[in-house]
Design a binder for these strands. Structure first.
Length: 485
RNA sequence: GGCUCGUUGGUCAAGCGGUUAAGACGCCGCCCUCUCACGGCGGAAACAGCGGUUCGAUUCCGCUACGAGCUGCCA
């Protein structure tokens, strides 16, 4: 069996969309699962849409996600160049286009904008326009074509598709797909600027670069019959096609910038770790044989069987991604977690607080790093709070009981000097036992007083350990004051 | 409008003619517990509709509905 070769062929037009990232991931996995090669090819034939810096984003994203390519612009594997604009200079596309013209499978077209415009017909209420080229230039005589060319008249080269018959191609997931040739437009192969269209370049490149498996988004299914005709016209063996289902937003529409999490960069900024993102999108449209959900990239390579890719579109559920990210955070070793959490802790905590202790508290309680802010804010300063918080049914506490406990405890805590968690806990537990109170009966009011919050990432005594004796006493006094008011 | 593809709980999904139709997220309840979270246990919740084929359809076929994609000198 020949070695599998796949390619990720993005056009450098901006951020890395998660749909594109998933395509890249699947292409990578299809190849790596069988020990094949994964290649990066830059499709920049549309100079108008080219965005400066977009190639850097692609490279950076691929690197961060671990989708390392075996060949690409920066890694020659003997099939270069790997950037289409550079391939244009080699004349490869024009050469193959002319070959098609010789075979009668393509032809020069000199129609100008106005004529093309007149071919448009609008349909439906929304004023949508469609255009089917009428093969006008196909009927030009050889002499006319020569004359036009000699006169330097701008031209494009179109694919010649007959009006009769059908064309069939085979997708690994969707099976045979057949369309009437009459439905197929004579698409442009070479643009008037001499650049090939994606439609043409992709066929020429995939063949000349020896790509065995073409993995791409579902949106290409409609044009695949045209590509198939190109392969057939050249007499080339067509690659294995694997078309991927769409990823949509919660409204089942194409993921857009508006959703706020449509690109890998957005997600990184929102505090998601790349391993979780990769794991999550792997499961958007593919599932393993067993019920496992947490996969490292290496495990994905091992388990990935492209036959199990689904055919229906998937909604990008940010809530589940958050859960998965939380799983990654919990499983992360302490050092790495602290390293990644540090910038956030530093940002959200005032100096002097024990960031290491607080980081450990927060580890099982956050899903993404920015969640830290809302959990630790009370360490910096006691927030304003409602004394209703002292009332807790299960702890059997009321405002009165809380006030009594706090007043009772104040001198004890003032006299006590060891503000370590263990010592404080022993002290309070002891106090509760002496008075035959349940632990919660005394700990609830203390925790409320020192935090001013309904819920905290730590217990009363842990909080006191962090903020220290002076601040603890001050907050308890404040609590007494509020309760007495 | 035409063509193509799709349709299992709110979401991701297993299933590939006979099942009490998995599992996960989310939601709810209980337990654990110095609150919350973690963890453990349990619950509600689905085969789009209609016709075939078949002894038997979520699974196969057709139609309808709904959704999506394509219909660019964009990819």
């Amino acid at each position: 069996m020949t070695k599998i070769r796949t390619r990720y062929a993005p056009s450098p037009t901006g951020k890395m969309h998660v749909g594109n990232l998933r395509t890249a991931l699947y292409e990578f996995l299809v190849a790596k699962h069988e020990g094949g090669d994964f290649m990066l090819r830059i499709e920049d034939t549309d100079q108008e849409r080219f965005v400066e810096g977009a190639i850097d984003i692609i490279n950076r994203t691929l690197e961060k996600t671990g989708l390392t390519h075996d060949e690409g612009p920066d890694k020659d594997g003997g099939y270069g160049p790997y950037v289409q604009s550079e391939r244009v200079k080699t004349g490869i596309y024009m050469k193959y286009a002319k070959e098609l013209i010789d075979k009668g499978e393509a032809y020069y077209c000199f129609c100008d904008k106005e004529r093309l415009e007149s071919l448009k017909t609008s349909i439906g209420e929304d004023g949508k326009e469609i255009m089917i080229y009428d093969k006008h230039c196909l009927h030009l005589s050889k002499e006319e074509v020569e004359a036009n060319l000699a006169a330097g008249k701008p031209f494009v080269i179109r694919q010649n598709i007959p009006n009769e018959g059908t064309t069939t191609f085979t997708d690994e997931l969707y099976g045979d797909i057949t369309v009437e040739n009459a439905e197929l437009d004579d698409m442009i192969l070479i643009k008037s600027d001499g650049y090939p269209t994606y439609n043409f370049a992709n066929v020429v490149d995939d063949h000349t670069m020896n790509i065995t498996h073409v993995v791409r988004g579902n949106e290409y299914i409609s044009s695949s019959p045209k590509y198939q005709r190109l392969y057939d016209a050249f007499g080339w063996e067509s690659p294995v096609y694997i078309h991927l289902p769409l990823i949509t937003d919660e409204n089942h529409k194409k993921l857009s910038k508006r959703s706020g999490h449509s690109s890998f960069e957005d997600l990184s900024e929102q505090g998601f770790v790349s391993e979780a993102v990769v794991n999550f999108i792997a499961l958007l449209g593919w599932s393993p044989e067993d019920n496992r959900e947490i996969f490292s990239l290496d495990e994905l390579i091992k388990e990935f069987d492209y036959h199990r890719i689904s055919k229906s579109p998937a909604v990008f559920d940010i809530v589940k991604l958050r859960w998965m990210n939380g799983e990654y955070l919990k499983a992360m070793d302490e050092d790495k977690f602290m390293e990644m959490a540090e910038p956030y802790l530093e940002k959200y905590l005032k100096p002097g607080l024990d960031r290491k202790k607080i980081g450990a508290m927060v580890k099982t309680r956050i899903e993404v790093f920015p969640d830290i802010e809302g959990l630790v804010d009370f360490f910096n300063a006691l927030p304003e709070y409602d004394t209703e918080m002292y009332v807790h049914k299960k702890m059997k506490t009321t405002k009165e009981s809380s006030l009594a406990v706090l007043k009772d405890l104040l001198p004890i805590l003032e006299a006590h000097d060891d503000y370590s968690n263990d010592a404080l806990y022993a002290l309070l537990q002891n106090y509760a036992a002496e008075h035959e109170y349940k632990n919660g009966y005394v700990l609830w009011p203390v925790r409320t007083a020192v935090s001013g919050k309904q819920m905290t990432p730590a217990g009363a005594t842990e909080i006191m350990e962090i903020i220290g004796k002076e601040e603890s006493i001050a907050r308890i006094k404040k609590g007494i004051e509020l309760l007495e008011a």
